[in-house]
C-alpha cells in the first residue's frame, strides 16, 4: 500500500558523477536517492512532496568504496552500513563507526542505507553522526562550481537544516585517524533492542589530554558538549562533569521519551563513559 503517485516524481539516473552534478545544478528541487531507506519511506507513506528524484546507484564504481588516503579514512557516498561494519580498517581503527552501523536499523537497512544519507537527513537521532562528530569527520561537497569540505560539526545549522546547497552532492566523508591510544565509547539507547530510533545516543573519544563527546536525540541537531569536554580534560571528577553536562543540554519531550529521562540517562552515560575510558581503567 504505497500511497504516493509515482508519476509525480520524474526520475534521473546519472551514469557518471559529472552527469549527476549537471543534473543537480540544472533541475530545480532534484532529490538524490542513495540507499533510499529514508526517501522511500517518505514516498511510500505519502509524506514526500512531489519532486524530481535522482538515483545515484550507477555511481557506485566511483562512490561506492571505503579507502584510505593520506592516513585518513574515506567513506564514499554510496558506502553502506554493511560496508562499514565489515571493512578491516574501520574495524581496526574506528570502532565507534562499526558499533553505530551495527545498531542502525536491521541488516536489510544496513545493506542499503548509506552513512552519507544518514548525515544528510539531518535527524538529531541519526546514529552514525555522533560517531562522525567524535572522530572529527569532514564532509566533501561537490557541484559543477567545484568542491568544498566542511567539518561535520559545522554541517548542521538547525533542526533538519544543513549547509548543503541546492546544486551540491556529497561525494565522501573523510575521517582523520584517531589519536593513538585513544579510548572509544558508543552507546545507543533506543526504544527496543533492534530497529529502534534513539532516545539518546552518545559517542565519545578520549585521548591523553583531549575529550570529544557528541550526543544525538537530545537537541535540535547532534551536539557536542564542549564545557563538559573541557571539564573532563582538565581533570574534573564525575560529579562535576555530570553537573556541567546538565548546563549544556536541554532535551525535549517527544513521542519516544521525556526530557527528564534523556537528561538523566545522558548523565548516567557520561559516568559510564568516564569509567570505561578512564586512563587508568
Amino acid at each position: 500500500m504505497i500511497v504516493s503517485n509515482a508519476v509525480r516524481y520524474p526520475t534521473y539516473v546519472p551514469a557518471t558523477v559529472a552527469e549527476a552534478l549537471e543534473q543537480k545544478a540544472g533541475v530545480a528541487n532534484l532529490l538524490p536517492i542513495a540507499g533510499g531507506t529514508e526517501v522511500m519511506v517518505m514516498f511510500n507513506e505519502g509524506l514526500l512532496a512531489p519532486c524530481p528524484v535522482q538515483s545515484l546507484h550507477r555511481l557506485a564504481p566511483e562512490w561506492g568504496g571505503i579507502r584510505e588516503a593520506e592516513g585518513s579514512l574515506v567513506i564514499g557516498a554510496l558506502a553502506t552500513y554493511t560496508d562499514v561494519r565489515h571493512h578491516p580498517v574501520v574495524r581496526e581503527r574506528y570502532p565507534l563507526l562499526v558499533e553505530a552501523a551495527r545498531v542502525t536499523g536491521a541488516l536489510q537497512i544496513q545493506n542499503r542505507g548509506t552513512l552519507v544519507g544518514n548525515i544528510v537527513n539531518g535527524s538529531p537521532a541519526a546514529d552514525t553522526v555522533p560517531a562522525l562528530f567524535a572522530y572529527g569527520a569532514q564532509v566533501r561537497l561537490l557541484s559543477t562550481r567545484g568542491e568544498r569540505t566542511v567539518a561535520v560539526t559545522d554541517f548542521y545549522t538547525g533542526y533538519r537544516k544543513t549547509v548543503l546547497r541546492a546544486d551540491e552532492l556529497i561525494s565522501e566523508i573523510v575521517i582523520p585517524p584517531p589519536a593513538d591510544g585513544a579510548r572509544h565509547y558508543y552507546r545507543k539507547v533506543g526504544t527496543r533492542a533492534a530497529q529502534a530510533i534513539s532516545k539518546v545516543v552518545v559517542a565519545g573519544v578520549r585521548g591523553r589530554d583531549s575529550v570529544r563527546l557528541a550526543w544525538g536525540s537530545v537537541g535540535p541537531t547532534t551536539l557536542r558538549t564542549p564545557k563538559t569536554e573541557a571539564a573532563i580534560a582538565s581533570g574534573a571528577d564525575a560529579d562535576e562533569a555530570v553537573a556541567t553536562l546538565a548546563t549544556e543540554m536541554s532535551p525535549l519531550d517527544d513521542i519516544r521519551s521525556t526530557r527528564d529521562y534523556r537528561l538523566a540517562v545522558s548523565q548516567n552515560l557520561l559516568r559510564e563513559f568516564l569509567k570505561r575510558t578512564s586512563p587508568g581503567g
Binding site: E45, T191, R192, A193, A194, Q195, A196, I197, I255
Partner: peptide, 14 residues
Amino acid sequence: NTRVTNYIIPTSAD
C-alpha cells in the same frame, strides 16, 4: 504513533 517505527513491538532481538 501510527507506524511500526514508533509503535514498538518486540523484535527477535527483544
